[in-house]
Design a protein around this nucleic acid. Structure first.
Length: 257
DNA sequence: CTGGGGACGGGGCCC
DNA sequence: AGGGCCCCGTCCCCA
């Protein structure tokens, strides 16, 4: 299984209706408005859509299910579900290298620091506007066309996937506060929270709040008696794969993971 | 060394 | 077709 989207299936037809949540939580839009964001100088150039409501309604998503959704299996995040926990713990990892979490840089867009994560960092020097991005479809593979990125060796089987990938080169979403650029609007929204201090995702167990949903997910593992990642040798469980890997490499296990 | 938080990227699915 | 959102995962840093 390439990636685990089993949990996703819970939402297959029951994705959280943010509009309804807004109605149920009438304080949302009042708490976070575009004006608020502007007031803290954290507007961005990539306000595609939904920034305001998205930020505002999210706090409701991690209330206990009984308070948010009548349907039991539509809980916003059921990390305790077997399907969720069954995800392959080593599904990826062949692509991540650098990082882009550089400290705020006065440089304009396309300035990358040593932590640049993307594999094709070098191409950023000759970025062209999205409109100029051209897909290279290999005629030799007409039966299953491959869309090649002209900035890096990656290829995709669909134009949409390629265009999505190209955004990682063009990084059209720019934070006007620090100039950091992102490939997708919601990445930028998440980044903006680092400026605003907004933490829409609350842990139902300890009320600790997080700005990032994934971080909440990881945090929820700390509340679990049995962690998600288990050592094949000693059966010890860990909340993160990285911890398991460290555990394995430190001697307990010779080959696991 | 371990555990956890912060920040972020990518692919896939849904609308 | 494109945008938005989701989940998974990684890396870095700190206690």
């Amino acid at each position: 299984m390439p990636r685990s989207f089993l949990v996703k299936k819970y939402f297959a037809k029951q994705k959280p209706n943010y509009s309804e949540l807004e109605c149920q939580n009438d304080t949302c839009l009042e708490n976070y408005t575009l004006a608020d964001l502007s007031s803290v100088n954290t507007t961005a150039t990539c306000f595609t859509t939904g920034l305001v409501w998205d930020l505002s309604v999210l706090p409701t998503l991690y209330l206990p299910a009984s308070q948010t959704e009548p349907s039991a299996n539509t809980g916003p995040l059921d990390l305790s579900s077997p399907s969720s926990l069954s995800s392959n713990a080593s599904s990826s990892g062949e692509e991540d290298e650098g990082r882009t979490s550089d400290p705020p840089s006065p440089e304009p867009v396309h300035t990358y620091g040593p932590r640049q994560r993307m594999k094709c960092t070098g191409v950023m020097a000759h970025i062209s506007p999205p409109e100029e991005e051209e897909e290279r479809e290999t005629p030799a593979t007409a039966a299953r066309p491959a869309f090649l990125c002209k900035h890096c060796p990656k290829e995709y089987t669909s134009l949409g996937a390629l265009k999505m990938h190209i955004r990682s080169h063009t990084l059209p979403c720019v934070c006007t506060t620090c100039g950091k650029a992102f490939s997708r609007p919601w990445l930028l929204r998440g980044h903006i929270r680092t400026h605003t201090g907004e933490r829409p995702f609350s842990c139902p167990h300890c009320n600790r709040a997080f700005a990032d949903r994934s971080n909440l997910r990881a945090h929820l593992q700390t509340h679990a008696e049995v962690k998600k990642y288990q050592c094949n040798v000693c059966s010890r469980t860990f909340s993160r794969m990285s911890l398991l890997q460290k555990h394995s490499s430190s001697g307990c296990c010779s080959t696991s993971v």
